[in-house]
């Protein structure tokens, strides 16, 4: 069925974390990545034959290394994201 998908809508990901712009930045990165790697056109919601809905569930930043003066030196950023890709013609979940 994926061969029949020609276009994809990717609305701005919802973000329950309050980091400013995180959902938007991730959505823009996904747009670019789709355009770089896949044959699907990224189009606005109404006209697409498939839709990728995403939600940032959490963003966690931890210090995992410090300088000898106890200043943060190495930070780890983890993102938890849920996505659902649906064929809008059949309502079938593709991924």
């Amino acid at each position: 069925h994926r061969e029949q998908v020609r276009s994809i809508a990717v609305p701005v990901f919802a973000c329950s974390d309050d980091r400013p712009g995180l959902g938007l930045r991730l959505t823009e990165a996904v747009h670019k990545e789709i355009q770089r790697r896949l044959p699907y056109r990224v189009v606005p919601g109404g006209s697409a034959d498939s839709r990728l809905i995403g939600r940032v569930l959490g963003a966690y930043k931890d210090v995992i290394g410090e300088t000898r003066n106890d200043d943060p030196r190495t930070l780890q950023l983890q993102l938890a994201v849920e996505v659902t890709w649906t064929d809008m013609r059949t309502q079938k979940v593709l991924a």
Binding site: I8, R25, K32, E33, Y40, L77, V81
Partner: peptide, 22 residues
């Protein structure tokens, strides 16, 4: 910089998401 590092994490997550669409 911090901003560049977090953008790298975002770009990596975007690649993982698009892996699902292949």
């Amino acid at each position: 910089s911090m901003a560049t590092a977090s953008q790298q994490v975002i770009d990596r997550m975007a690649r993982q998401i698009v892996d699902l669409l292949e």
